[in-house]
């Protein structure tokens, strides 16, 4: 079982997160978007990356990845965060 266990991130469904969700989808072709009332949950097998540059491109402004905190609902997976990338992954 290597790298196929799903990670996920759940974000509030609002105008701030639209460009983030778009960025996630374009950077993670295997990402699967599930919409619920007020909430969007994105699953991805093994690993998911959120790239600052991709979000900025869609937002049209500077974006600090820590801003994710504001609209984050939940996540699953280990986290590795730097200025440029927020990564969720499983090692197994």
């Amino acid at each position: 079982m290597s790298n196929i266990q799903p990670v996920f991130i759940a974000l509030q469904a609002n105008n701030d997160t639209l460009p983030i969700i778009e960025a996630i989808c374009s950077d993670n072709p295997q990402a699967q978007v599930n919409e619920y009332p007020a909430m969007v949950k994105i699953n991805c097998p093994g690993r998911m990356v959120i790239r600052r540059s991709s979000v900025e491109e869609r937002m049209g402004r500077d974006f600090d990845l820590r801003e994710l905190q504001i609209n984050l609902i939940s996540l699953a997976g280990e986290v590795d965060e730097s200025e440029d990338e927020f990564v969720l992954f499983w090692k197994a």
Binding site: M1, F8, A76, G77, K91
Partner: peptide
Amino acid sequence: ENGGALFAD
């Protein structure tokens, strides 16, 4: 599902 992934890890 999610717990399964966690404990596999």
